[in-house]
Design a protein around this nucleic acid. Structure first.
Lengths: 172, 172
DNA sequence: GCCCTCATGTAATAAGTTACATGATTGA
DNA sequence: TCAATCATGTAACTTATTACATGAGGGC
């Protein structure tokens, strides 16, 4: 099997958290890891197939009434692969893709008010994410720890962009 | 021409900042926008070709001695395309891909010391980026404003991960 | 002579998004 | 009955990385 990629571990990790189907995994991803690692159905379903072929997970039909459904669980090999990956603290550099910062970087040609609008929009988006994270109430443990980090993070960004907006408006 | 993507605007924006060749653009990208928008040679050179075909930039041979080189500049259409894009403050959500947070999210199975090591590694990487940004000294203007944001950002992250590491070690 | 930097480009691959296609169940 | 949700999957496309290939100039 070609090597595992981060998406493989998202699937493995979610199964260990007790999730069962591709659909379930996608639901949790969308309100948790997507803030730092997104995954689409177009990745999840093929990945489940790959992981099952590789023997890292085991799946069985689990229809709900006449509604099809396939439930998975980790195999011993899958547990081990996940643990090995988690134990390795040598992680590549975080990647950000932020169009707001990119526009601001090139905003010297813009009127101060337009540059400030960019900073404002960026700040509002972070505030929106913070508000979404506030609604979540994960159980004690690392999922909660990471959510708290995300909350602080997006609040900090919202505030810092607000400050940038303010500076941009007064400087000129 | 198929629509412009963010990488197109990186090229356009860099040309307006006075950069001339694909090589030059890559050098500046690597010490500026890469912290929030990376671009490789494999994107930049084909993109220059596309943009020239679309009439947004104009290139001419500009050899340095016997060393080949092609220098570009924005056309009026290119300037306009860049300005239109900058003026639009409706920006998609920031995307982060952070393997450190992903591992921490799944770290409940780990010993507290191992989870702490993950937080420590993440914090150190942010501290490293902050140190790199400190070495930079961009001119007054938005490139400097964005660099200052990056500096505060990575310092904040470094500190917050250090705090997480500390909490992880004492809680258990 | 050798290594580093300047300089441009392509090919193969990997990763990820979006749109599409299908169909059952639940609740208003 | 109608919309939302549950549920799975594929195909086409876009995006981005990596490795490769090539070659000149400058400094030691």
């Amino acid at each position: 099997m070609a090597g595992l990629n981060p998406t493989s571990y998202v699937v493995l990790g979610m199964l260990r958290l007790g999730l069962r189907s591709g659909y379930d995994i996608k639901q949790l991803v969308d309100k948790s890891t997507r803030f730092f690692w997104a995954a689409s159905y177009g990745q999840i379903y093929p990945e489940l197939k790959r992981l099952e072929e590789a023997g890292l997970i085991r799946g069985e039909a689990d229809p709900q009434g006449g509604r099809q459904r396939r439930a998975y669980e980790l195999t011993k090999e899958g547990e081990a692969a996940l643990d090995d990956w988690l134990a390795d603290a040598d992680i590549p550099l975080t990647e950000m893709r932020d169009l707001g910062l990119l526009k601001l970087f090139f905003a010297d040609g813009l009127a101060a008010a337009d540059a400030a609008a960019l900073a404002r929009a960026a700040g509002e988006r972070h505030a929106g994410v913070a508000a979404a994270l506030e609604q979540l109430d994960p159980p004690e443990g690392m999922t909660r720890t990471v959510r708290n980090f995300g909350l602080d993070f997006h609040r900090w960004c919202a505030e810092r962009f607000a400050q940038m907006e303010h500076d941009l408006l007064e400087d000129k």
